[in-house]
Design a protein around this nucleic acid. Sequence first.
DNA 1: GTCTATAACGAGATAGAC
DNA 2: GTCTATCTCGTTATAGAC
Lengths: 189, 189
Amino acid sequence: MAQNKQEQILDVAETIVRSRGFNAFSYADIAAEVGASKASVHHHFATKSDLGLKLVIRFTDNVLQAMGQINELHTSNLIKLREYARMYEGAMEDNQMCLCGMLAAEHETLSEDMQTAIISFFDGHEIWLEQVLLAGKENGELAFEGDAKVHAQAIVSSFQGALLVAKSRRSIQRMSVFASHLVDSYRAR
Amino acid sequence: MAQNKQEQILDVAETIVRSRGFNAFSYADIAAEVGASKASVHHHFATKSDLGLKLVIRFTDNVLQAMGQINELHTSNLIKLREYARMYEGAMEDNQMCLCGMLAAEHETLSEDMQTAIISFFDGHEIWLEQVLLAGKENGELAFEGDAKVHAQAIVSSFQGALLVAKSRRSIQRMSVFASHLVDSYRAR
DNA sequence: GTCTATAACGAGATAGAC
DNA sequence: GTCTATCTCGTTATAGAC
């Protein structure tokens, strides 16, 4: 709570970007929300691109760490997949997209630094998911045909798309139905 | 080819929006590309929101008509699903998102008119897909468990997400692998 | 580290001549 | 239907005082 201004700015910026996109927010928006001047925001993040890159790096760290936590807290690979799905449901509860999903749409308009960081985010997800899928298949918890890597890619894409479409309808329900649907499709019978 | 200026403007605008988003293009961009003045573009589409709405309506008409064509040209529901997937692969070949997928990300920043039209686009897809899934299950071409409506929603979301993620990597291959993967998962064995 | 003021630019949109 | 010129506003970013 008693966080410094930098984190406060990043928090506000992240919320706005995840709701409206990187090209639809300004330093003035942030300044108003954190109760400071635009110049003060520039003091902490010289350019919008700087701010954007820090945003992606922080978000990636947080999410990959959460996925590490899932690994520590659970042994069942089905439950790991369920917990992964829960992250997306959580985003939808705040009517937000994944930061990197939103930025993927705007990808061509972003700095090279940001573009690279966004791709790394998705890479991290795919590696994690592939590992869960392989382990789950091996111990009989999960069932699927074909390449685990392709499934991992498909799962990431599908969740991102589910957020995208569900957000336009402001439908938490739609998101949670999808999440159950997808997780269930990997459950061994 | 010998199209009028209105269509020419819409064509250029659609390409830009599908690549960069609605909030990352301007009347100046269009004017430069069609070789006319900004004022001339305003003459045809008074406001940006007008232009955006016409864009969504035209796109929806075209896509739904293409889906009608698929129904006329093919009887196999598996092939219908394959042809549906082909539409997304075609978009990725131009490194573009679906117009409405892109706009779904920016949904909160758009006019009410546009928001409503975007939702209708997805509704049309889901209705079409549900029908294909039900018919395909009935005649034994397709196999899936559970509610066809939920599957239809999942398919739309998944393709949108696949475009979103594949575009950030400029990977046509990734898109086509996903398309085959998804279609195949509905094939009866 | 914060502020006010302002520069420099591009946006959406309009006026009015041709 | 097209143009040039212009208005108004919001944007990113900087200068410089406190």
